[in-house]
Write a protein that binds this DNA or RNA. Structure first.
Lengths: 156, 156
DNA sequence: CGCTATCTGAGAATGATTGAGAAAATGCCG
DNA sequence: CGGCATTTTCTCAATCATTCTCAGATAGCG
């Protein structure tokens, strides 16, 4: 997707993304190294969460263990989030405050995951309802995850 | 299918649950053996998805490999569903058409998962909105997963 | 009863992920 | 530019959940 429809406060361009990533890493005492930049760029380029193999291919020249290690560093720094799906690999994406809040279309047949943004008013209603619910349950709500599970265009 | 609280089929009592499980297994050419009954009963007793270790304890006397094997059989038969969380084990629960549609409160700090039911009107609105969205994306929507992530009472 | 297909349990195998330590890179100070 | 400290990367082996294998036990059926 790159450059097309990105919304609001999210990092609009690569430069902003980089400075933001760098400063979050710095906050945890880590540097924004070339490997990490490669990973972040690959994630920024994709419009869906990437698995380790995809990431290795997308970045070209990063050792597998480095990818694992650096992703976990980036996760600790709050730059990427691990998305656990039903298929065998963990997947990674940039955190929502870098990319905007979104959800996933999960294909039950091929395992593909694609991002979707639900209309703001739906999201707002949902947030309100969930906040009430959480309060009633004595649960401190941080965020929600909503996945649409079904069959993607390609598989049907 | 998800908006309805339960279509006539939902198993209200253990006996009904057993016949339903047996017939779904039969439909896939499998038997409802004692091990499988133990697993189903344990899941029915719990008010939250169980991990393999929990399940082994709750059933008392089932070999680990049998648990894995039988859960996957039960999954194929449409009796149980695998719930993937961010913590290390997969968790299992009875499928929604046996227990009623519900969501999860996921504690990001201790990994505990608890079931919640959101108010019917919220659910209905959400379903409607998601259906529109899915259609627009050329995605054949089967059901949705909504998890509330935060901190549970015990951890805060 | 005996046949046959299915199920069980113990352990081995698999495959994703992580850890530990050595090697390399980078930053810093003069 | 050197030397030293710190951080990062790489290699390789370990770990851990999950799946597979296979010999023996069981159930359903004639």
């Amino acid at each position: 997707m790159s450059t097309r429809h990105r919304h609001g406060k999210a990092a609009h361009d690569v430069a902003a993304l980089h400075t933001e990533a760098a400063s979050r890493l710095a906050a945890v005492g880590q540097r924004f190294t070339s490997n990490r930049r490669l990973l972040v760029d690959a994630l920024a380029r994709a419009d869906h969460p990437l698995s380790i193999p995809e990431l290795l291919e997308a970045t070209g020249d990063v050792a597998q263990s480095s990818a694992y290690r650096n992703l976990s560093v980036l996760e600790r720094a709050g730059v990427v989030a691990k998305v656990v799906t039903n298929d065998e690999w963990a997947r990674y994406e940039l955190t929502e405050d870098l990319t905007g809040h979104h959800h996933h279309l999960v294909c039950g047949s091929c395992g593909a995951v694609r991002d979707v943004v639900v209309p703001g008013d739906v999201e707002a209603d949902l947030d309100r309802a969930l906040a009430v619910l959480a309060k009633r349950e004595g649960f401190e709500l941080q965020h929600h995850r909503l996945d649409l599970v079904g069959v993607c265009k390609k598989c049907s």
